[in-house]
Structures are given as C-alpha cells and as structure tokens.
C-alpha cells in the first residue's frame, strides 16, 4: 500500500500545534534584542542577566525547596494511601477514602487553593499553627495535591504486584517489615521514583494554589514570572522558561525511561 500524505501532514500539524509556542520561546531566549518579538541576532546575554537577578534566583531556590519537600511528603503519604487501597480490599469508608484521595486530581486549582487558604486561616485562629503564610503553607498545600498523583501511580503498580512474592519472602523467614524493604520496595521503586518526579514537577509548575496560600516574601518562581510578565514580557523570562522546560523535560524523560525499563521484566516473571 502506498504511503499516504495525510498521516505525515496530520502529525506535523499536531506537533507544531503542541510545540511551536515552546520552540519560538526557546529561540527568542537567545535573542539579542530587548524587544521580545523582534529578532536581532544570537546572544546568551539574557541568561547572564537572569543569573544576576536576585529576586529570580531566590524564587527559583524557594520553588526547588518546596518542590523537593512536598514531593517527598507526598511520596510517603501517597504510598501509604495506595497500599491501603490496594491491600485492604474492604474497610469502612473505602469508597469515600479512594474518592477523597483522587479528588485533587479533578478539583479546579482555584477551589483547592481557596479552601486551603480558608483552612490555614482557621487553623491559625484555633491552633496558632501554621503561623502566617509562607513556605510552610505552600509545602502543605502542594503535598496535598501531589499525594493524589503519587497515590494513583503507586496504586497501578501495586495492583499488578504478585502477592505470592511477599508470601514467599515470609515463608523463607523474613518478618513482614523485612519483606517490605527487601521485596515490596525494590519492586515498586520505579513507581515511587516516577511518582516523586511527577510531584516535584507539578509543585514547580503550580501558580494558582501557591498564590492563594503564600505570604509576603515567599514568592515561588511561577509567581515571580507571572508578576513580571504582567508588566510586559522581558527576554530574561524567556531564558528562565527555557531552563525550566529543560529541567521538566529531563525529569519526565527519566521517569518514563525508568517505568519502561521495569516493564519487560514484570511481564515475563
């Protein structure tokens, strides 16, 4: 059969629809000119400019910290939730629990952000904690919705986990705790890594929820970029965006590779 022209063209259109904006952003990050839309020659000066901007660097550092901490918290909570959902088929409130865990996946960010803000304010009133809003409240908020993503990823991995592997370890004399660290953890490790990376990326990316729950002096990177862009796009934002795209793409790539490499083994054994 003759290869049609339709499929390649459709693919090209699809890809350009998805990636043309990103490509143009990357190209213009190397623009000489101060004007964002006029090309006047290749330069990396905006990258230099970026690294001399303390506000930008502080925000980036804050975002990385928040991302790492909330991804880690989410990893622990999400894994526990997934184990509970997969291993204990029947317990009181299971449907409610599974619905609540995955609710942040479908909840609009505005609502999540607003509700968390109200919660934090109320908690401060009653418990005196968390005091004010800042890095801590952003971490708490991000852990909440990242937990949902981690839970989904780990749940699918645990779902096709052969229980007899754990039974075999116990049969050979390993205590339940030992079994978890020797057998369960190594086998679900790929899902944990990709869950963590997913949480980290989502936290890095979040603007709406962070805007609700952040306080003075704790602006994350997306918040800084957003406020800058409102005053007119400056080329150093392009440079920053390019770096972020690079980071995120690497993260997603690693997560995908890890998932793929662990698949064939599982299928055979």
């Amino acid at each position: 059969m003759r290869r049609g022209w339709f499929l390649p063209i459709a693919a090209a259109l699809g890809f350009s629809f998805l990636y043309a904006p990103i490509v143009s952003l990357v190209i213009f990050s190397f623009n000489e000119s101060r004007l964002v839309t006029v090309w006047s020659g290749f330069s990396t000066k905006w990258y230099g400019e970026l690294f001399r901007d303390p506000q930008m660097l502080n925000a980036a550092w804050l975002s990385l910290q928040i991302g790492a901490v909330s991804a880690t918290i989410a990893l622990v909570l999400g894994t526990l939730a997934a184990v509970a959902l997969v291993r204990f088929r029947r317990f009181r409130g299971r449907t409610l629990f599974s619905g609540m865990v995955s609710a942040p996946l479908v909840m609009p960010d505005v609502i999540t952000g607003l509700s968390l803000l109200l919660l934090f304010v109320a908690m401060e009133g009653f418990l005196g904690w968390p005091q004010g809003r800042g890095m801590l409240t952003i971490i708490l908020a991000h852990s909440t919705f990242c937990t949902a993503y981690v839970c989904v990823v780990v749940q699918s991995r645990l779902g096709d986990f052969d229980r007899s592997l754990e039974e075999a370890a116990m049969d050979l004399g390993a205590s339940p705790l030992r079994t978890f660290f020797d057998i369960t953890l190594p086998i679900i490790a790929p899902a944990l890594v990709s869950g963590w990376l997913l949480g980290f990326t989502l936290s890095l990316d979040d603007l709406v929820i962070a805007s609700f729950v952040s306080g003075p002096g704790s602006s994350t990177l997306p918040m800084v970029i957003f406020s800058k862009v409102r005053l007119g796009v400056s080329p150093d934002v392009n440079a920053l965006a390019t770096i972020i795209i690079g980071l995120v793409a690497t993260g997603v790539l690693i997560a995908t590779i890890i998932q793929l490499r662990s698949k064939p083994k599982k299928a055979k054994v």
Binding site: D162, S164, L165, E167, A168, I183, V269
Partner: peptide
C-alpha cells in the same frame, strides 16, 4: 508457589 514467586530483582 504455583507462580514460583521468584524475586524478579
């Protein structure tokens, strides 16, 4: 075990 349950890692 019926599935042999060999530790894949």
């Amino acid at each position: 075990f019926q599935s042999y349950a060999l530790f894949p890692h």
